[in-house]
Design a protein around this nucleic acid. Structure first.
Lengths: 266, 266
DNA sequence: AGCGACAGTTCCACTATCCGGAATTGACTT
DNA sequence: AAGTCAATTCCGGATAGTGGAACTGTCGCT
């Protein structure tokens, strides 16, 4: 049985068969393209036979496709599920008009992302340039420690939960400005809490800046973040301050409407 | 042993635990909004206790969210998976520039959809009006018997597989023009095979017409369809003929490039 | 209020189902 | 042709899921 070793630092403990299956999906999702059986095997802790059967089952359900010739990728059935998940998501629906307004006010790309597990998932986006391909971000995930939305969402967590999450992160460094560990992150979060805004000054990618404001979890919805992102040449300090005010106000409005619509009895 | 005989490619008998879990997801996806426990129970053939545990597990994995207060909807983690599935999909990537060209040639909305199970899943879309909200279709599913892409894809199947699929469909009637059953559908498919194009003249929704061409399954990719859709006032008969030629040619090009790039050794 | 009906949750013995080591087949290389 | 490595199949054994029934909580009704 000994499933949980001492320093078991995964987001969740594997819950039975389903957990294993999802773990396999996660492994396949983590690679760029298709993966061969052995590649998956290497990243998984399942024995050969077991993994093989799991893949077969997943393929039978359409959750992965076995590009004939032993190479696996995620299945299209996931698209169907996700499209419903997105369309039915009440949080997103409530926030949508506000995103649009924020985009009109700033002219820049606006993102909405929610905290899920130990990362942010982008839920919606209004793009700066016309329709570059909106898919580009929706459903993508981003780290917590180096994005505006990530820090914004973290800033709303209860201290004990925050401690747990912060302890689990990997603190991958993307640029020179990326916060290198728990200490700096906690300091930064204190500042975010004080100001009500989180900045990302080239912490995730070079040349990109971003201002984000928190939307706390409210009964039915999870902690989230709302952000304005721009290239550094359009995101000077005075412009950042301007955006900060706008983002903070809009996030507050969204929070308010959420409370009214989704969780009157929080 | 409910294992089906050869050529089993549809809603199959539930294969073990995973199958049950996916079935639950499907049930939740089939509803408009969140579902209460009992609603799901009613549509499922699982006993109370079992279903409850399944939902709990799914929720623990982030595949469903339990909007506190006993109402379940699909979880955001699905978004992450789907976004990877979409981005990594080689078929879609190959077809994309062609869709764009077709859109420019016609000025109308262009769709790419693949056959999955007993329905079509929309894989990509280039919209007529600017950025209406591209999410609108990707991942959506549509019936086979009343859509251009559906009939186009069906027209490429082998006779025996076709017979199975056609036998399983439900033939829901959406308009007066919706083909009412297997017989008319098979007749229509013969015509599609002969002409290389499938028409949808208000079979799925009133006021909407569409011309689609088949992209046969080729080694690594599934049968698919490519279509141009327009409102009836812009889709007169002579225009439909024009589109037909364009769509047929572009679909042929895509098919060709797929063969070259994905499955030289089909 | 109190009662009744229904929704959601918990429990636990049973056994179907999944597990996983080892042997087999297949593909590709030298 | 032989050797290596990857993918697949097999099967006894134990885990993990099953599902009937009992429990709790919530709401609507008189």
């Amino acid at each position: 049985m000994g499933r949980r070793a001492a320093g078991d630092s995964g987001p969740e403990r594997q819950t039975g068969t389903l957990g294993k299956a999802v773990e396999v999906l996660e492994i396949i999702a983590s690679a760029e393209g298709p993966m061969r059986f052995t590649d998956i095997l290497a990243r998984s802790d399942q024995p050969r036979g077991t993994l093989h059967r799991q893949l077969t089952n997943l393929a039978a359900e359409g959750l992965v496709t076995a590009d004939r010739g032993h190479s696996y990728s995620l299945g299209l059935r996931l698209l169907k599920f996700a499209s419903r998940a997105w369309a039915d998501n009440a949080f997103r629906a409530v926030a949508e008009p506000y995103l649009r307004r924020l985009h009109e006010a700033t002219g820049e790309t606006v993102h909405l992302a929610v905290l899920a597990g130990d990362e942010m998932i982008y839920l919606d986006k209004v793009e700066s340039r016309k329709a570059v391909r909106m898919h580009s971000q929706i459903g993508n995930t981003a780290p917590l420690h180096c994005t505006g939305v990530g820090k914004a969402a973290l800033s709303t967590l209860e201290p004990d939960e925050l401690a747990l999450v912060v302890g689990r992160l990997s603190y991958e460094r993307f640029t020179e400005n990326t916060l290198p560990g728990p200490g700096p992150l906690l300091d930064e979060l204190a500042r975010v809490r004080a100001e009500g805004v989180a900045y990302d000054r080239e912490e995730h990618g070079p040349g990109i800046r971003c201002v984000a404001a928190p939307i706390p979890s409210s009964g039915r919805s999870r902690a989230a973040g709302l952000s304005v992102t721009g290239p550094i040449f359009r995101a000077g300090e005075e412009r950042m301050q301007l955006w900060a005010g706008l983002v903070r106000d809009v996030a507050a409005e969204v929070t308010e409407e959420l409370r009214a619509r989704l969780g009157p009895r929080a």
